[in-house]
Design a protein around this nucleic acid. Structure first.
Length: 262
DNA sequence: ACATTGACCTGAGAGC
DNA sequence: TGCTCTCAGGTCAATG
């Protein structure tokens, strides 16, 4: 589901398709998905302008026109973007549609409406208002800070990784993948992990996210040691051939290998 | 003050 | 075949 790597791929997709083209129409097809801004403000910001810059913080994607404000897209669990020309390529649940002067469209599709369309003065401002933690791939995030974050709470490590206020960008799927690569059980208490274990999680986090982006966030292209393509109870662990287990942790379905993540 | 749980939304797939 | 039920998951409000 759209987590950091997916949103990074959306960002690059928009950069390669939609920048510097004149916007000739803005259609908001689900007004209920617009939060913290009005439909008319969004139309006014975009209409007649061109997208010039993109940014990402965690799972939030920002696009700036020549103006001062940025449009913000959050993808919930079913969101994605698609650039297309012909009506038969149009996705099924378009919530925001942008017309370009070259006859192409950029669609923001979100079947389950868990996403959000908003405006912000700047990505930094947005992150501050939402109290978002550092982006999980922020170069400024070092192990010392990461260790501090983990010691701030006594929740399960899985919950901590998914908490956007601590660290922005990880969701259910990538938290599981990181803990699998680190060999740590998702229900371990964050505060009880030793320094070596925290180090494992920190470095595997960067590794997993970078590899996922390299693979276009497509599990079919992931390295063969990745758990994500095997997110199903009873499937064989890609490392030990043991059986993958499914369990609710922090209200979310977690998959892990009980043998590798003892 | 913190941690956990449920509602929100919709369609796919399971089960009868 | 066709109906109903369960589940998925990010976020935030409500509850513990």
């Amino acid at each position: 589901m759209p987590e950091l790597p997916d949103v990074e791929i959306f960002k690059r997709y928009i950069e390669s398709t939609s920048l510097h083209k004149r916007i000739t129409g803005v259609h908001i097809l689900s007004r209920d998905m617009v939060k913290g801004a009005s439909v008319s403000e969004i139309k006014k910001l975009l209409d007649g302008e061109r997208f010039e810059t993109t940014a990402r913080h965690g799972k939030n994607l920002f696009i700036q026109t020549g103006g001062q404000s940025w449009i913000m897209l959050h993808f919930g669990m079913t969101g994605f973007v698609k650039y297309f020309k012909n009506e038969d390529e149009r996705p099924a649940h378009v919530r925001l549609l942008i017309d370009f002067s070259n006859g192409f469209y950029l669609a923001y599709d979100c079947q389950r409406k868990f996403g959000m369309i908003s405006l912000t003065e700047s990505p930094e401002r947005f992150a501050t208002e939402k109290k978002l933690g550092l982006d999980a791939l922020d170069p400024a995030l070092d192990f010392e800070q990461f260790e501090k974050i983990l010691s701030k709470t006594n929740s399960t490590i899985k919950t901590v990784l998914m908490n956007q206020n601590f660290l922005a960008g990880l969701g259910n799927v990538y938290s599981d993948e990181i803990l699998y690569q680190a060999g740590i059980h998702p229900a371990r208490k964050s505060g009880e992990l030793d320094r070596e274990e925290k180090k494992q999680i920190f470095f595997k986090m960067g590794h997993v996210l970078r590899k996922a982006i390299e693979a276009q966030a497509d599990p079919a292209r992931f390295p063969s040691s990745f758990l994500t393509p095997y997110r199903s109870a009873g499937k064989p662990c890609p490392k030990c051939e043991g059986s993958i287990e499914k369990k609710k942790i922090g209200g979310r379905t977690s998959y892990f290998c009980p043998r590798c993540q003892g």
